[in-house]
Design a protein around this nucleic acid. Structure first.
Lengths: 243, 243
DNA sequence: CGGGTAATTGACCCGGGTCAACAGCAGTGG
DNA sequence: CCACTGCTGTTGACCCGGGTCAATTACCCG
């Protein structure tokens, strides 16, 4: 999956891909839902490559208010960068059961030294991560509740496709309404109501942890979504319309 | 200023500092207030080092709603990273008159090649930028209007200090209420009212583009501000209480 | 069948938005 | 020196998107 994700940016050699596979299989661990992989204040340790399940970065205020600031889906890297820093400024927690590969800093550094194209792809990955964070700031700061949710669905829909977790116009989407609320700065109750509106308008279908977007174009319009900030317009990109 | 900022992270050699000074003086340009240095959709060009004045990154929705996603103050770098990407996903505009040094990618790459400590410091800078972006997401997503503004003041207050733009407990603060609103996801009217509340509570004094924080500790409490996400706890950090 | 999590609903409320007018003040030109 | 313009800050009246609280329903899953 990581392979797949990086190849959205650049072509990797056989050798590059083999190295990624090797590291991704070296130390695989599992977590249940709602566990912390690492907590704010901890010293950053290893790098994780998400293999299965969903996780998130989140921050919390002293009184308990919680903001999810990013979602991790399979193929995503957690915190590769952070290891220069002394302490985590946020937590990473699972949302579902998660399988992930833990990679030591040493192995990770070595990977980058040996594979310049991977290094470049990782740099791209970091830039995209920041771009997404900026888009979230816009999303929460300016869009209405209805638009925010629509936008989030568009984004995740596209991201899931680029790592191959696509099935026509539907995707596994194992996120509950509380987490959607924490990600969009809304309450569960209001998320529920807006989902109903989105359903009524024929823009989403969401049952049994399955998300179907029957009319992606209209949804994008409603969300004022443009995929430019995901920066998928690169040589290695596999352009396959809807799979 | 850039020097100063990077030295918050690591000690630079005489030579490092000289090179930064050299590049920062090489091609200095000026802009009036409310001009765009670069606009969403443009191909990223050079790197800018802010020398004087304030600028911001912002994004806009098709209907005109505008979100400032970051402030640039002297010493900040704009878009050093972006040049791998094909098109800007946001704009950079001035808020006041601005003087900045424009550095070509070539010169910039060369600087990094020749000065590993600078490279590392720039990497740190990028990580801090993302961390700030995450904090903004939390700020807008979870804090109330009053808290949001309080938090913004704390953050900028500290950042201004680390680049030496400090004068006891007061700082130049040339930002109008509209921009404060665009940065916090609030309307001008409401910003105005919350500023009045903050003044009434003795937490801020803001006249004539001068910000004084007579009781920083209480303001931080009110904002639930912790400076951890600025990651200033490094070897090179100049620990000077309040200057 | 029981217990736990997630989704849904209704009644009510409030933080913050909207709209529109007005005041203060610096700059500019006559 | 003054009228004019434009920007920024301020105020008041009113409204609405979204929050709060609390109860209820639908699902799992063992």
């Amino acid at each position: 999956m990581l392979k797949r994700r990086l190849q959205a940016f650049t072509r990797l050699s056989e050798d590059d891909r083999a190295s990624i596979d090797h590291l991704s299989g070296k130390c695989v661990r599992e977590w249940g839902a709602k566990r912390d992989l690492i907590h704010e204040g901890d010293r950053p340790r290893s790098v994780f490559v998400m293999l299965e399940g969903w996780a998130c970065r989140y921050k919390q205020l002293p009184d308990g208010r919680r903001q999810i600031v990013a979602f991790f889906i399979p193929g995503d890297l957690c915190d590769m960068e952070i290891y220069i820093l002394k302490a985590m400024d946020h937590s990473v927690g699972t949302l579902t059961n998660v399988r992930a590969a833990e990679i030591s800093h040493h192995d990770f550094d070595q990977l980058m030294l040996d594979h310049p194209r991977i290094t470049q792809a990782l740099h791209w990955d970091m830039l995209v991560t920041v771009a997404v964070q900026r888009e979230w700031t816009l999303n929460i700061g300016q869009r209405t509740a209805y638009e925010r949710l629509a936008h989030l669905f568009c984004e995740l829909f596209m991201r899931l496709r680029t790592v191959g977790l696509a099935n026509g116009d539907t995707r596994d989407f194992p996120i509950n309404q509380t987490d959607l609320g924490d990600a969009t700065g809304l309450t569960t109750v209001h998320v529920n109501r807006m989902l109903q509106d989105l359903r009524r308008d024929g823009l989403i279908e969401l049952h049994n942890r399955q998300l179907r977007l029957p009319n992606l174009h209209s949804l994008m319009d409603a969300a004022m979504f443009t995929p430019n900030y995901l920066h998928l317009d690169h040589e290695g990109r596999s352009i396959d319309a809807n799979s």
